[in-house]
């Protein structure tokens, strides 16, 4: 995996400020997303992570500053699992196919599209789930289904909003490995996360956000107590375990360290 990236620029944000109604959520953000990057946007809830993602997606216009996007850039987006209506009447295959809105206008899939869907489902290891209703999937399978929908668009840049929020440990590992594979295949990835140990410390490039860019660099450059304190507003220690940085809370209340009875 590459670190902060040296490849061609996909999206360039220069001194961008953005927000909703009368409030500014992000100020003076300068950030470059490159073709060979795998980036984690880290920060506490309400810090502007999703706002930054929306700026990259182009669904939110900046109040000031400029955003330059590479011509004909193919972006795919994977939403948070919690925001999905799992009771919606739809099968895995129908869900994956819906992203193919360009070109063919007919409701049913062509033979070529069916082959393409089968190939993507196979790649993500969920072929046998094609006919299943989305509610019957596990958290990991749900995440794979949305990745399949995103991959059917053959994206250059994949954006994910909290991909490990609400999933168990083994699913988190699954998702991380899957994303690493996709990145190796040449897809640039930007995801948001507030999961430091489970996700952020494993990523090659991190951007810490708290209404502004606090730090931008490799995990070694960014996962440091002073940066984390500026980002999260709380003291944290950083240890090293098997070459990976581990963030530890500094709980001041002894009852928390001993376990509250």
């Amino acid at each position: 995996m590459t670190g902060t990236g040296v490849g061609p620029t996909l999206i360039d944000l220069e001194h961008v400020s953005a927000g909703y109604d009368h409030s500014i959520v992000l100020s003076d953000v300068t950030l470059t997303v490159r073709e060979d990057q795998f980036t984690g946007i880290v920060g506490p809830s309400g810090a502007g992570k999703t706002t930054l993602l929306r700026l990259l997606l182009g669904t939110l216009k900046p109040r000031s500053g400029t955003i330059t996007t590479a011509p004909d850039l193919r972006i795919a987006y994977v939403p948070q699992l919690e925001t999905v209506n799992w009771n919606f009447p739809i099968t895995v295959e129908e869900c994956v196919l819906m992203s193919r809105t360009q070109g063919r206008r007919l409701p049913w899939a062509s033979a070529a599209e069916k082959r393409e869907v089968a190939r993507v489902l196979e790649r993500l290891g969920i072929s046998e789930l094609a006919e299943r209703h989305i509610r019957s999937l596990s958290g990991g399978q749900q995440q794979r289904m949305f990745l399949a929908r995103a991959l059917l668009r053959n994206p250059q840049l994949l954006l994910l909003d909290e991909p490990t929020s609400g999933v168990d440990v083994s699913t988190r590992h699954d998702v991380l490995h899957l994303l690493a594979d996709l990145h190796e295949d040449g897809v640039a990835i930007v995801l948001t996360t507030h999961d430091l140990n489970g996700m952020a410390t494993h990523l090659p490039h991190l951007v810490c956000v708290n209404h502004r860019i606090v730090a931008d660099g490799t995990a070694a450059e960014v996962i440091r107590p002073e940066v984390l304190e500026q980002t999260f507003g709380a003291r944290m220690d950083v240890l090293e375990h098997l070459g990976i940085r581990v963030v530890v809370d500094e709980a001041r209340d002894p009852r928390i360290n001993e376990g509250v009875r």
Partner: peptide
């Protein structure tokens, strides 16, 4: 979802 989110520690 019923699974608890894995929060930063």
């Amino acid at each position: 979802l019923v699974v608890a989110p894995i929060a930063a520690r």
